[in-house]
Simulated assay, not measured.
Amino acid sequence: MAEEKSALQSAREWVVEHKLRAVGALWLSGIAGSIAYNWSRPGMKTSVKLIHARLHAQALTLAALGGSALVEYYDHHSGSGSKVHQYAKQYLSSDGSSQK
């Protein structure tokens, strides 16, 4: 159980640090899966199959971006945050003031 938890935690940390790569990989797998599914369905034009694959991948990408935004929001409010947030906190605490 501890190994599964640490593997899940390490996967979560990777996704938090590499959000755009995770979204890109999800898009690529979504479009590949959708093309494979559409190609197995006879009676559709090739152009329609490609349009459907693009739409499926686009919906999956929007869901992934929404999920990424939720993770960022949760991390920001829970205090863990990404490295950028941690550096900003260190800078502000060492400076003693916020500059705009």
Rank of each mutant, 00 (worst) to 15 (best):
M1D: 10
M1Y: 12
M1T: 14
E3Q: 15
E3V: 15
E4Y: 06
K5N: 08
S6Q: 10
A7D: 12
L8R: 15
L8T: 12
L8G: 13
Q9T: 09
Q9H: 09
S10A: 15
R12C: 01
E13S: 09
E13I: 11
E13P: 13
W14N: 11
V15G: 04
V16H: 07
E17S: 04
H18I: 06
H18T: 06
L20T: 09
R21N: 01
R21W: 07
A22F: 02
V23F: 04
V23M: 07
G24C: 05
A25R: 02
A25E: 05
A25F: 07
L26M: 01
L26G: 00
I31E: 04
I31P: 03
A32R: 08
A32T: 05
G33W: 05
S34V: 00
S34H: 03
A36E: 13
N38S: 07
N38G: 08
W39A: 14
W39F: 15
W39P: 10
R41S: 11
P42L: 11
G43E: 04
G43R: 07
G43M: 03
M44Y: 12
M44I: 10
T46H: 06
T46E: 08
T46A: 11
T46Y: 11
T46Q: 09
T46V: 12
S47E: 11
V48Q: 02
K49C: 09
K49I: 08
L50F: 09
I51T: 12
H52A: 02
H52R: 08
A53Q: 01
R54K: 08
L55W: 02
H56G: 09
A57M: 04
A57N: 04
Q58I: 04
Q58P: 04
A59N: 15
A59G: 12
T61I: 00
T61A: 01
T61P: 07
T61M: 00
L62Y: 07
A63G: 06
A63W: 03
A64W: 08
L65W: 02
S68H: 03
L70G: 09
E72W: 02
Y73D: 01
Y73H: 02
Y74I: 12
Y74P: 01
Y74F: 06
Y74G: 03
H76Y: 10
H76R: 03
H76S: 09
H76L: 10
H76Q: 05
H77R: 06
H77P: 00
S78P: 10
S78I: 14
G79T: 00
G79S: 09
G79M: 02
S80T: 13
S80I: 15
G81V: 01
S82C: 05
S82W: 04
V84I: 13
V84P: 08
Q86M: 01
Q86G: 04
Y87R: 14
A88F: 15
K89Q: 07
K89L: 11
Q90N: 00
Y91H: 05
L92F: 12
S93I: 13
S94A: 10
S94L: 09
S94M: 06
D95Y: 07
S97H: 13
S97Q: 14
S98M: 12
